[in-house]
């Protein structure tokens, strides 16, 4: 069956050397290949910066043709609880490594595990430590319990620089024979905020509707509201018109398909561009912070953001 991959997969670097903007990390990882041994690793950083890519590339270079047999990827946030994770690990760890000394278990988004679950994980790590190395990835290393941190070499993946993003985007545009305008490239770097996945998806989405990639096209598709839209919604709310601001929110979230996280992040940014006193800005930031917190804890993004708008218009 003929198909087309999303470009994040089509252009995912297969070798450590192809990963852009991560030189110090790549150098450290390559030393493990030379030595043919490695400790447990902890990759910390925001989404889309190369954590999974680095783990897979490392496995490929260590194990060569047998990498698939010796590498297992599990996502802690989706699997149904720590017991499923442990069973999966156990099943995989039971058999001997092929053509090497150890296997690698990559546990993505480990900070989604509760601390009880992490303690259970730690015991599992100990049981299989002679045959398995763990690579844990997380958004925040502070959410990983100390005993696990102390058993791992820690690698910090910060957001990628605009330059790194641009290098990759230009390369893909070239391969795909896309007419990428300079302002389009700038816009992609801007909306991506150091997240390569976002950048590549923005490029692919733009190319889906336009022949040449311009700034306005990028904003149109990047599943980001135009900054004015967000600012406008906040202004309406601040004027006391809760009902109308709620309608704008509905359109952003439910019709345009933005994520609550994006909206709240942009609201925070736009706060500083509002024509209100500094005292008022501080108050708004406080309300946004509370809403962000509830957004993480709650089930329905619309309801949580709606409460923020109620605060802006009435509070």
């Amino acid at each position: 069956m003929e198909f087309e991959k999303p470009w994040t997969e089509k252009y995912r670097p297969q070798k450590l050397d192809d990963i852009v903007g991560r030189d110090p990390i790549v150098r450290r990882l390559k030393s493990y290949i030379d030595k043919k041994s490695m400790p447990h690793l902890l990759f910390a950083g925001p989404p889309g910066v190369g954590k999974t890519t680095a783990a897979i590339a490392l496995a490929k270079e260590i194990f060569g043709e047998y990498w698939k047999q010796n590498f297992q990827e599990t996502n802690a946030s989706d699997e149904r609880g720590i017991n499923v994770v442990r069973e999966k690990i156990k099943d995989f760890a039971r058999t001997k490594p092929i053509g090497g000394e150890f296997k690698i278990i990559f546990l993505d988004e480990s900070d989604a595990l509760t601390s009880d679950a992490q303690n259970a994980l730690r015991r599992t790590m100990e049981v299989y430590t002679s045959t398995c190395r763990f690579i844990l990835s997380c958004n925040y290393s502070s959410r990983i319990i100390d005993p696990i941190q102390s058993r791992c070499a820690i690698f910090r993946f910060g957001p990628l620089t605009n330059d790194a993003i641009k290098i990759m985007i230009k390369k893909i545009a070239h391969e795909e024979k896309i007419d990428l305008k300079e302002d389009g490239l700038e816009a992609i770097a801007y909306v991506s905020e150091g997240d390569m996945r976002k950048a590549i998806n923005a490029l692919q989405a733009s190319s889906g509707i336009g022949d040449s990639i311009t700034e306005s096209l990028v904003y149109q598709v990047s599943s980001r509201a135009k900054p004015e839209e967000i600012k406008n919604m906040m202004k309406i709310a601040l004027s006391g018109d809760f009902i109308s601001s709620r309608r704008v929110l509905q359109s952003l979230l439910l019709e345009q398909g933005l994520s609550g996280e994006d909206i709240i992040m942009q609201m925070h940014r736009e706060t500083f561009n509002l024509e209100v006193s500094d005292k008022e800005k501080v108050r708004i930031v406080d309300m946004i912070g509370e809403a962000d917190f509830r957004l993480v804890q709650g089930a329905n993004e619309f309801i949580q953001l709606e409460y923020l708008l109620a605060n802006l218009s009435i509070g």
């Binding site: 994040t8 999974t52 993505d108 988004e109 889906g208 398909g257």
Partner: peptide, 22 residues
């Protein structure tokens, strides 16, 4: 297919939806 959690998988939907226009 994209080595990520459901949460991150969601961020692919707008792009996919745009490709669906063609």
């Amino acid at each position: 297919k994209c080595h990520c959690s459901r949460k991150i998988a969601r961020s692919y939907l707008p792009m996919i939806a745009i490709l669906f226009l063609n």
